[in-house]
Design a protein around this nucleic acid. Sequence first.
DNA 1: CTTCTTGCAAATAATTTGCACTCCA
DNA 2: TGGAGTGCAAATTATTTGCAAGAAG
Lengths: 135, 135
Amino acid sequence: MKNTKQRQAILCLLAQSHGPLTAEDIFQSLRDSCPSLALSTVYRNLERFCAEGLVKKESLNDGIIRYTSGREHGHYLVCTECDRRIRLDSCPLSEIEQELARKTGFEIDGHSLTIYGKCPDCLHRGTSGHPSRKD
Amino acid sequence: MKNTKQRQAILCLLAQSHGPLTAEDIFQSLRDSCPSLALSTVYRNLERFCAEGLVKKESLNDGIIRYTSGREHGHYLVCTECDRRIRLDSCPLSEIEQELARKTGFEIDGHSLTIYGKCPDCLHRGTSGHPSRKD
DNA sequence: CTTCTTGCAAATAATTTGCACTCCA
DNA sequence: TGGAGTGCAAATTATTTGCAAGAAG
């Protein structure tokens, strides 16, 4: 895989980001540092990075794909009101996966786990809180 | 919420389905039994059902939203080659969620968990197997 | 009747693709 | 220099919306 400014910029941005980013997020963020960058290049490279395992896709049930730096294997507790996220550090699934592989004959590649809820702030604000997120 | 043919048909289909369905899936499946049905009606009702808690959304990282009958709380082991799914019956997360709620003050609403891998058939067929699924 | 729903068509939004040109190795 | 990579614009695909006509309570 060739090394280009665009690829560096995208990977670098993802590595520095604290949460998952959409293709559009990345495109906008790189406007300044890489003005000629095309949105299609972002998509193409993200797809490529996924194939190489450098980056992971996720989609939080709103149909929009978000990408995270590959090392960033993590699970989140996300607030359905304000989208605030808390990273969960423990991953209780490795044993389960081994068991599952034995039972089913699958070769397990990975998993996605997200827990949804309402954060304390949004709870106290009542259910009629401001709509800071679409879904 | 008024009771219409369309709504019955959609809910009924979801209840009988073994796996999550896309809006398009539902639209196609109901072609015969409900010829005048519009795709936008499917979307509108699915959205409505989600709001009422009758149906749940999920998205398997391909950016396409799938819907399942509400009771159908389940987790899947899905093959990344052929999309075959195996339902997992145990859900090891309830304890974890309780712990999490105590620690973070979140009110936990639910979670999504999907485990990815390659099923025995696709493994034996080699990695260059037929592309039966996009992602 | 009156309001909630639907169907249709047109509008968005997200993502992909074709192709000529550019730039890394 | 040659082929992988890019930008642009156009094409798809998924989803949403406006509005007049239809059906449920």
